[in-house]
Design a protein around this nucleic acid. Structure first.
Lengths: 364, 364
DNA sequence: TCAAGAACCTAATACGTATTAACGTAACTT
DNA sequence: AAGTTACGTTAATACGTATTAGGTTCTTGA
């Protein structure tokens, strides 16, 4: 299934080497390399070129098929029109592909719209060497600036970037002061969900969150608790964490306790949600018939194990991932151009009506 | 929804500048910059450093928090550990995201596995300037090599790359000799589908193909025709092209003509398939009850307009997109390392049994 | 006609690292 | 003791572009 093709003919190049350089153009046009640079770069400060010279240089550049070397451009302290996107993933990228994909789409869209190329750095890269996080993060300096993306991020190497004045933006909320991020307003959106439950008449509710302390989870918890308090829901025992234990037992206990609604969150792994829905299905319960269910966050587009026993979409809110990607690119460009100080943006989440919320139906 | 954060404290750097360089280390360790490079790079050809010197240099590098500059590295050495991925898309990238996505996943997987980073070039980029295709394609030289991806590609600029000896690989079959590509064996797979129809007892069949001449479409047509001839199907009037006309009328005509099975192809737009299935649904036909249906290619993962009226998957074959991405990366790396001549790989497609094929049921 | 500008261009250098030829120096041989 | 080797390090240079401080020629005004 493999066929070797004859190599293409290689026409002689003026230089003997593959790529024509500015100095080749200079020779052809009878000017200096500096002049070529000035012509091709567009007039800089005050320097004026004779129209005739410009023409000659441009002509020669065209003839030779000149291609500016982005690396050299970058080394010579200018921009190279490339933005980095560094993805930290605990698991292999493909596993979380679906839940992160919309962000990538947004980033790509906006980057293309702004005429920037994108360098994809993968956290797992360079696995061959004895590389630390630090070494991995270093590579991003090849770009004009970088976006960081993922729930968990190695902080030290990135602090170093910050100290060096390298422009970067987190996608997702961060706690560290002085660094830029574009996040979603999980607090408000989560509070709104709690309020929705209260409005339906629920009183005893459980919020099942992931057992880690990523800002996204912390924010949601805060929103749920604040919202519950504000709406008059019971807050004692409201929050529980996934602990790898028996979800079925947990669900049964909740029913015994008179819980009428459960809220959980969607993260990159989707563990909390999938575990919960599976348990609900095993218990033979329906939503919202027996139990109301709300989800904080957008579920993956095409889950490997589709949620069974649920009629429509899960109620809660959606994360504006695509718009976050776009906003992050815009902010990063502002930082690179120096036209903005480090700053943070929180985007509003969109409520999802869904089909899993209803009035309370106490179990047993 | 925006908050300005205080800038982080900037600790004094030995150099007065932001990033320590090899020459800073050299000064601190009392050696030359060249020695620093040799130490940090690992022993090159025959050059041996005194263990004591190594220690001093490494120590100094550690103390100063040295970070090699990838850009300078790339300029000095030939490689920079980055592969380009250039996507040509007729429409906006996002529109075809789903159907191309598996390839991107494969590329990213393999690139990460090989310790390479990825530069995403988008054809629409640099829209601001008066840039030609040529100028757009030039940018890929920032990488060590490049993958090209898309049904239609500007040939001239790429020929130039080829002449310059720049390593690149097409994903998808190409006609041009002497350039490398990784494609799918549409001919064999399409012929197999035709044979399957014949085995079920069909005789009068139609193949509806896209109205363009991308190699992928050409190959499929050849496969269908060859396979039909080999299996004894009627070949007169077998092939038709989409022409933007009335699909319903076309379908009705087929029924009148006694056609019992229809084959179509999936491309980046998905136009042929979606038009056809919509017409089938409007005509109140079921597959395979009234009409057998086969598809050449993998349908997009999550079609915007889900196929209605079809019980299960559409029969035909699937394109190994992810594996094509992986294979293309491997081939590109071989080319870059000079360990391989330009060559082509055709990957086998996987038959999809599906639920839309059955014995012939003449209409009317 | 001379000096002062203006207009155009170039020489020189920086950017940070990799590589190679060459240079001392110390150890070893005879 | 002189010559040879081996060893450890460095000077020099390349990579390709950007930038700035001049240097030449050309106008222009008096």
């Amino acid at each position: 299934m493999s066929e070797t093709a004859s190599p293409p003919p290689t026409p002689p190049r003026p230089n003997g080497r593959a790529k024509p350089r500015q100095s080749d153009i200079a020779r052809a046009a009878g000017v200096s390399q500096a002049t070529v640079s000035l012509v091709l770069r567009g007039a800089t400060t005050g320097v004026v070129l004779a129209p005739e010279t410009r023409r000659r240089v441009l002509r020669a550049a065209e003839d030779l098929g000149y291609v500016p070397d982005p690396v050299a451009t970058r080394l010579a302290a200018a921009r190279n029109g490339m933005l980095g996107l560094y993805t930290f993933s605990t698991t292999f990228p493909t596993d979380v592909a679906h839940s992160y994909y919309p962000v990538l789409v947004g980033v790509e869209e906006e980057a293309a719209a702004q005429g920037q190329d994108l360098i994809l750095f993968t956290g797992a890269s360079r696995a061959a060497g004895t590389t630390s996080d630090a070494a991995a993060v270093r590579r991003v300096r090849a770009a004009d600036g970088c976006l960081f993306f993922g729930r968990h991020v190695p902080e030290d190497p990135i602090r170093r970037l910050s100290e060096d004045g390298f422009p970067f933006v987190y996608i997702g909320r961060r706690e560290e002061p002085g660094i830029s991020h574009v996040g979603a307003d999980y607090v408000s959106a989560s509070a709104e969900v709690a309020a929705r439950l209260a409005a339906l008449g629920h009183h005893r509710v459980r919020y099942l969150r992931e057992n880690d302390d990523a800002p996204a989870s912390t924010d949601r918890e805060r929103g749920v608790v604040d919202g519950a308090r504000g709406a008059g829901l019971e807050t004692v025992g409201l929050v529980e964490r996934t602990d790898g234990g028996d979800v079925d037992a947990r669900l049964a206990r909740w029913r015994d306790e008179g819980v009428t609604a459960v809220v959980t969150e969607e993260t990159d792994t989707g563990a909390a949600l999938s575990g919960l829905t599976a348990a609900v299905a095993r218990a033979g319960l329906s939503c919202p018939g027996d139990l109301s269910l709300a989800l904080l966050g957008t579920p993956a587009a095409a889950p490997a194990a589709p949620v069974t026993g649920l009629a429509g979409a899960i109620s809660g809110f959606g994360v504006p991932m695509r718009e976050m990607g776009r906003a992050a690119v815009r902010l990063l460009l502002d930082l690179i151009e120096g036209s903005a100080a480090p700053q943070s943006h929180l985007l509003a989440c969109e409520p999802v009506a869904g089909a899993t919320l209803g009035p309370p139906h106490p179990g047993r």
